[in-house]
Design a binder for these strands. Structure first.
Length: 699
DNA sequence: GAGCACTGC
């Protein structure tokens, strides 16, 4: 291939990188979870290090702004130190006096834990006392002693259920707010409401440049037009990163998979030391590029090239031990090439990356509010994402980023990604808001309001499940209880019904297992033996009972990691399922749902599943495909379902529909059509297709 | 017959 590159642009340090900070360097999974080492003699040097961070110069101004404004938006560029330092400035200035707490939210668990660890270390404190964290399944904080508390944004929303005004907090800092995760957005809307009742509550919104004004306008309660009465101010803190040269292709690339391989080989031949990180959209592309690179590097070795290539895949579905390989150091004679999905954009940081290749696309979840069907679509990345990807190459030294698209096309990309709130099924959000006392969700102050049709779909589903009444009010006790579960409402309903079906023990396991992705692992090199082992767990009733089998076998085999490996099962996933199961059990006991086993009878279990998932039913069409009962949509059983290899049952319920190349049903079980009429008479009635009312569907 | 970005409670 002729040299497709031309240098188009020089990326000035800190002008383009969205607000990531010091903590990111500590986010790599390999570095997380260790004990905190405290060296009492290091306090002076820690103090000096703290003063060297770019944010230190702004210390007094930040404190001044917080005295004068209810909300402060801080544009903190990568490496400025905001996440670790600002909470300490607040503590030192007395914001955590009189039993008050400074709270800092993070979108991800690892980040909450690692930043908390770093801050505790800087203060010479034991994690869990003065400095602590709270994430699901792991509360390392002290109700009395903790002054700075790191938590996931989802956890903050949960805390509001117990303490609607968040009275114990004097200041809340929402870190990485520009990521606009679902829970950050929920928290933002709720905090604005809380601020109207609690004038003393201060907010710090840490965001990227692009969104700063949107946040300020949202939180500015001043309607007088007089700027001196503004309640929100903005401050920008420069970052500390290395420059990244950005290159574009001269003309559009017809095949970015091939172009990725060619670019890697070009870098390998022409450039000095430094690892490569390539972004692609999915598992299949990643594996294809890895195998092509392996082939190419063999040819290179044969031709006598001294420097070797080591291509490694990285995506969430990869077994844990395989994921860890990307963090391993390689000898100087080897160049590491990590081929990753979007997981490497924010969730993990790989040290030593100098060269980044960006295919320009991303796989995103989308939601169709008309059909209530979610899909995974490959879409062009946003400019913000592209900058974030490029920035992954400038963390240790100056880097280079190769974009597999033209500069002209870059200019046409959307500035930022559509917030999750606008591309998701809102039923869990609406239920949560109702439980927090937001009666009129249509008038809730959303930073980015979701489509009205999505709200309507959510309200209809919650009504059908009995969580809301005809007036849209939360029902007692059902709706309130459903909201307490960390699950989508259908699962919550199924669990709450499981006592009366006499199968709560099985249902709680099934609900927990369904929260885990990739229970079955299939390494590309061992697909056949893996499939053989997996088939042993499969039952004709479908995926729910198959997952029950897997979990019960896991417990029977003393939760052994060795056993999981032999059976190609995701050990970490099963451990997580056990933790989820325990949490769900606690909630069921709280609501006095009796502990009962179906004693091997599959029918009650399936009926109980129908009591939660009746709206997700489909029947087999003579074409061989399924059709939804809701709106006659054509669907296919996903190849990962055990029913894919079985004789297709006439009627099924499913957990979700995912649109990729076709509409696929995921997590499917066989049912009897009569159960639908019996268990959801308000939703279904027996009849003919010609007649029909609006609400009830004809079975 | 043929396929699942990523978090989080």
């Amino acid at each position: 291939m002729a040299a497709p590159w031309s240098t188009m642009k020089f990326w000035k340090p800190g002008t383009e990188g969205p607000g990531l900070s010091l903590n990111e360097e500590r986010e790599a999974t390999a570095e997380v979870g260790g004990s905190i080492i405290y060296n009492p003699h290091a306090s002076l040097s820690i103090e000096k290090q703290r003063q060297k961070l770019p944010v230190f110069k702004h210390r007094n101004y930040i404190l001044y702004l917080l005295e004068n404004y209810q909300t402060v938006v801080i544009v903190g560029e990568t490496g400025c130190g905001k996440s670790t330092q600002i909470p300490q400035y607040l503590l030192e200035a007395g914001w955590a006096a009189e039993g008050k707490v400074v709270g800092v939210t993070q979108p991800r668990r690892v980040a909450a834990v690692s930043v908390a660890g770093r801050v505790a270390e800087e203060r010479g404190a034991l994690l869990g006392h003065e400095v602590g964290y709270t994430i699901r399944f792991d509360d390392c904080s002290d109700a009395h002693a903790t002054r700075i508390k790191f938590l996931t944004d989802g956890m903050l929303v949960r805390e509001m259920m117990a303490d609607p005004l968040l009275k114990k907090y004097s200041v809340l800092m929402l870190d990485e707010a520009h990521e606009r995760t679902l829970y950050t957005d929920i928290a933002i809307g709720l905090l604005k409401k809380i601020q109207k009742k609690r004038g003393d509550l201060r907010l710090i919104v840490a965001s990227a440049t692009l969104d700063a004004e949107q946040f300020r306008d949202f939180f500015n309660l001043n309607e007088s037009g007089n700027p001196s009465k503004d309640t929100c101010g903005i401050l920008t803190v420069e970052g500390r990163t290395f420059p990244v040269d950005v290159f574009y292709t001269m003309s559009p690339v017809p095949d970015y998979v091939k172009a990725t391989v060619e670019t890697v080989m070009k870098i390998h031949e022409a450039e000095g030391d430094g690892d490569v990180l390539a972004f692609l959209t999915g598992q299949e592309e990643v594996e294809r590029v890895v195998s092509m690179l392996v082939e190419q590097s063999r040819a290179l070795s044969r031709s006598g090239m001294k420097k070797h290539l080591r291509a490694l895949p990285m995506y969430a579905g990869l077994p844990y031990s395989e994921q860890m390989k990307v963090f391993e150091r390689v000898p100087h004679t080897v160049r590491k090439v990590v081929v990753a999905t979007n997981i490497a954009e924010t969730s993990i940081t790989i040290n030593g990356v100098v060269f980044v290749i960006d295919c320009g696309f991303v796989k995103l979840r989308a939601y169709n509010p008309k059909t209530a069907i979610e899909s995974l679509v490959v879409a062009p990345v946003s400019q913000a994402s592209a900058s974030q990807r490029a920035g992954r190459g400038g963390r240790n030294r100056a880097g280079k980023c190769y974009r597999l698209y033209t500069e002209e096309d870059f200019e046409k990309l959307p500035p930022s990604t559509v917030p999750e709130m606008q591309r998701t099924n809102l039923a869990p959000v609406i239920l949560q808001l109702k439980a927090l006392g937001i009666d009129n969700v249509l008038r809730f102050s959303f930073l980015s309001p979701p489509p009205a049709q999505s709200m309507v779909q959510a309200l209809e589903l919650l009504l059908a499940l009995g969580g809301l009444d005809e007036h849209g009010r939360l029902t007692e006790p059902l709706g309130m209880r459903m909201a307490e579960f960390p699950l989508i409402p259908m699962f919550a309903k199924m669990l709450l019904e499981s006592g009366s079906f006499g199968c709560s023990e099985e249902i709680v396991t099934i609900a927990a297992m369904m929260q885990i992705q990739n229970v079955f692992v299939s390494p590309p090199s061992q697909k056949k033996p893996a499939a053989r082992k997996h088939r042993k767990f499969a039952v004709a009733e479908g995926d729910h009972l198959t997952m029950l089998n897997v979990y019960e076998a896991f417990v029977k085999n003393r939760r052994s990691s060795q056993w999981c490996q032999e059976h190609f099962l995701n050990y970490k996933g099963l451990q997580r399922a056990a933790a989820v199961r325990e949490q769900l059990w606690r909630l069921l006991s709280k609501f006095r749902v009796p502990k009962k086993s179906s004693e091997g009878d599959p029918e009650v279990i399936l009926r109980c599943i129908v009591s939660g998932f009746f709206a997700n039913a489909a029947r087999l069409h003579h074409s061989g495909a399924y059709r939804t009962l809701r709106d006659d949509h054509e669907l296919h059983i996903h190849p990962t379902s055990v029913l894919y290899a079985e004789k297709p049952p006439k009627w099924v319920v499913y957990n979700e529909v995912m649109q990729t190349s076709r509409y696929f049903l995921r997590d499917v079980s066989a049912i009897e059509s009569s159960w639908l009429v019996e268990l959801a008479p308000h939703f279904y009635r027996r009849g003919t297709h010609s007649s029909g009312s609006k609400r009830t569907k004809v079975v």
